[in-house]
């Protein structure tokens, strides 16, 4: 277990949430006796992540992603189960452990609100005992990569959300952690900056062999960075494996894109017989067909229509993920105790 960067065994976090009905009588009753309800934010999660891996951590809102990251970073005590990160028990929050990790969350966190960014950096340098030369080097790297130059002397409260996020990422990496827990690191950033952050995380991983566990709402982040994805829902493991395997496993359909050569007035009628027509215009058509019927459908299209070009594609990852969550919602219903998932 100690060779792993992250290992959890049946990790569980249960919150007790006060329940109160509306109305005066209920308010008075709650004065005397409080009723609480257990919410299983993380419900028996077992994971292992090897050093140097970049893993995407996916799930709908409220799936337990952030709670899991907080337990891995030592901010939350697990209700039960085991966690080790780099051989440490995170909740003990030993300095030797804290110096090796970082957690970036999409909110203000390490930066001091009222003072220039550079002062926050300096504070973290001393707190993490980063030698001056190494600090200078890392800071130069970060500043050029994230374009921090103009921001360094501004008080944090004057920064825009995107600027703040860049600075949060920079300050979280000044001590060169071996594990990065990134919770929505690109939220609020424009597309160019998202791409830069992605490139930066990949580069950091390559250069330092750091382990990265990343949640994101942008599938582009996950597709660009993560070979492996872990999908959780209702705090339980739904899928753990390669991104391509996730798509293969959960996509029930394929899309066939066709470029028609010349006129084919009956094209729509033909395609509607074969599958679900997603779009058809200007001689270009997209059809969705069940995966098992891909070969037959392709043959039929080639035989009946004047095809210039044809390609069979997996649906976009976004759609697949959406489908995974939708199907589990349908299968289990919210709050149903019997959600089994399809853990792999």
């Amino acid at each position: 277990m100690n060779d792993l960067a992250v290992a959890t065994v049946r990790l569980r976090k249960t919150y007790q949430v006060p329940v109160r009905q509306s109305g005066i009588a209920a308010s008075l009753r709650s004065l005397v006796r409080r009723t609480t309800r257990d919410v299983h934010a993380v419900d028996g999660l077992s994971l292992s992540i090897a050093p140097g891996e970049i893993t995407g951590f996916l799930g709908p809102n409220g799936a337990g992603k952030t709670t899991t990251l907080k337990m891995l970073a030592g901010l939350l005590y697990p209700t039960s189960g085991e966690v080790t990160v780099l051989g440490h028990v995170p909740s003990r929050r030993e300095p030797a452990f804290l110096r090796q990790i970082t957690l970036v969350m999409g909110q203000r966190n390490q930066l001091q609100w009222d003072i220039p960014v550079a002062d926050s950096f300096e504070l973290n340098r001393t707190v993490y005992r980063v030698p001056a030369a190494a600090f200078r080097r890392t800071l130069d790297d970060l500043a050029s990569l994230l374009d921090l130059g103009p921001l360094m002397m501004k008080p944090v409260r004057q920064l825009s959300l995107g600027e703040r996020m860049k600075c949060e990422i920079a300050v979280a990496l000044l001590h060169q952690p071996r594990i990065l827990f990134l919770d929505e690191p690109t939220i609020g950033l424009d597309v160019t900056m998202q791409r830069r952050i992605r490139a930066f995380v990949a580069e950091y991983n390559r250069r330092h062999g750091a382990t990265v566990l990343l949640t994101s709402h942008y599938m582009a982040d996950v597709e660009a960075l993560c070979k492996r994805v872990i999908v959780i829902h209702h705090g339980r493991l739904l899928f753990d494996g390669e991104l391509s395997a996730l798509v293969a496993r959960f996509s029930t359909h394929k899309t066939i894109a066709i470029d028609l050569d010349g006129d084919a007035p009956d094209a729509r009628a033909v395609l509607e017989r074969i599958g679900e027509v997603v779009s058809i215009e200007d001689g270009h058509a997209v059809v969705r067909v069940p995966k098992s019927q891909t070969a037959r459908a392709t043959g039929e299209i080639l035989a009946t229509l004047p095809v210039a070009d044809l390609s069979v594609e997996d649906p976009p990852v976004d759609d697949v993920i959406e489908r995974v969550f939708a199907s589990t919602r349908d299968a289990t219903g919210d709050g149903d105790a019997s959600h089994e998932g399809v853990a792999g």
Binding site: K70, A73, G74, L75, R93, P95, A96, L98, R99, I101, T102, L103, M105, Q107, R108, N109, Q110, N124, V127, Y128
Partner: peptide, 12 residues
């Protein structure tokens, strides 16, 4: 407001 989290992450 949860800003204690940032401090808890530091080794001091």
């Amino acid at each position: 407001n949860g800003s204690l989290s940032g401090q808890l992450l530091r080794p001091v």
